[in-house]
Design a protein around this nucleic acid. Structure first.
Lengths: 212, 212
DNA sequence: ATATATACATTCATCCATGTATGTATAGGG
DNA sequence: CCCTATACATACATGGATGAATGTATATAT
């Protein structure tokens, strides 16, 4: 086999990333060899080295590809014209949780990140990137929360920073716990209930308030 | 150097585990070689192979050693004579969170488990063990919650299973988020507030209730 | 006091993953 | 129609980690 057309080349690139996702999931990122990925993709290591610099490069590309398509959903609450920012927030949370429970792709990528990856050496770059992405998300969420306060959906003296921290912790914790032990509880069915408990708490709790 | 006394041998064993903790933290479990651990401990690989079967064995031993000394604290709420099970629960939660924030050892071990370890191949055994330990903990916590209900500290129709799931998710999420980005929030200072929000929510929320 | 098991250190053989260098057939531009 | 960059496959050199084998000096039991 030799030179393919450009479209075909992009196809093999995608196949390599698909294969990487599978192999990373089965063997872990560090334990997976480029040979494993190559044979899973039906190519040789040469193909991988043509499209990517090394395994780390493959890993970054794989992580990038499944960039949550949820950002759009999340940002709907940031619009100050949105009459129901809290509703959008709820939608987003439930959707995220159920998506993890339903979509095997999402689940695999999360599982790779949480359980099959060492964030060390080169890979620490990914941690840094995710940290930055997370901080941006926190900014956006803060806006949504402020909108909800302005619309009277949340108390005026709510400590938004702490609310966002709890938001993030709840989602992270539920996803991690469920990936850790899927039989422990039914994430898809109960997502709404957990989210509602959190949201209701924001209004009902005497905590999470500004001091003055 | 040659044969040491039994006490000295136990000392070198401990040194090896200390070194493993350091090296695992710096390089990740899989990336760390037994040479790294040996030189960090001031011994040769021979010593490690004497005390342990292989790297995986070292890893398991390390994980075992720092078995949370919190179990005792957690179990205080399981005693049906305890007049304030909810108080013990709160104590435990706050203690756990603050311990992670304060004790570098605890923090390192958690960070190794969450960020510097691939749960794959041999290491999956650890996941299984932790899952079992977690399920036992869930049993104990359920007892504590039932005691709290019996004492009138929590509503009668509280869905204890879901309450425990939220409990676990909240702690996991807060610890993970903070280890992921320690500058995002002050875990030590705010631990109590987050815990109180959760506990208050258990009573105040209309959710997490049994259907009948 | 001696023998033996112990607690390591040292050495060796092997394997496997990586990176690179080289080969090669073809797509696509001039 | 030809040339060259492309899209891989193949071959090779290297290094580092593992596990086992062997060496060795000394606790310790008898």
């Amino acid at each position: 086999m030799a030179r393919r057309t450009k479209a075909e080349a992009q196809e093999t690139r995608a196949q390599i990333l698909d294969a990487a996702e599978q192999v990373f999931y089965r063997k872990g990122v560090l334990s997976a060899s480029l040979n494993d990925i190559a044979s899973e993709a039906g190519v040789t290591r040469g193909a991988i080295y043509w499209h990517f610099k090394n395994k780390h490069d493959v890993f970054m590309a794989m992580a990038d590809r499944r960039r949550l398509p949820m950002e759009a959903l999340a940002q709907r609450g940031e619009d100050s014209n949105e009459p129901d920012p809290l509703g959008r927030l709820r939608e987003f949370m439930v959707y995220l949780l159920q998506q993890v429970a339903r979509d095997p792709h999402q689940r695999r990528v999360f599982e790779i990140m949480f359980q099959k990856c060492e964030f060390t050496g080169e890979n620490e770059a990914l941690l840094v990137r995710q940290r930055e992405a997370c901080r941006e998300a926190v900014q956006g969420l803060s806006t949504t929360f402020r909108n909800a306060v302005a619309r009277g959906q949340l108390p005026l003296n709510l400590d938004i920073g702490k609310a966002v921290t709890l938001f993030h912790s709840l989602l992270t914790g539920l996803v991690m716990y469920w990936l850790f032990d899927p039989q422990a509880f039914d994430l898809e069915a109960c997502a709404g209930e957990y989210v509602d408990t959190y949201l209701h708490g924001l209004s009902a709790t005497p905590f999470l308030r500004h001091s003055p």
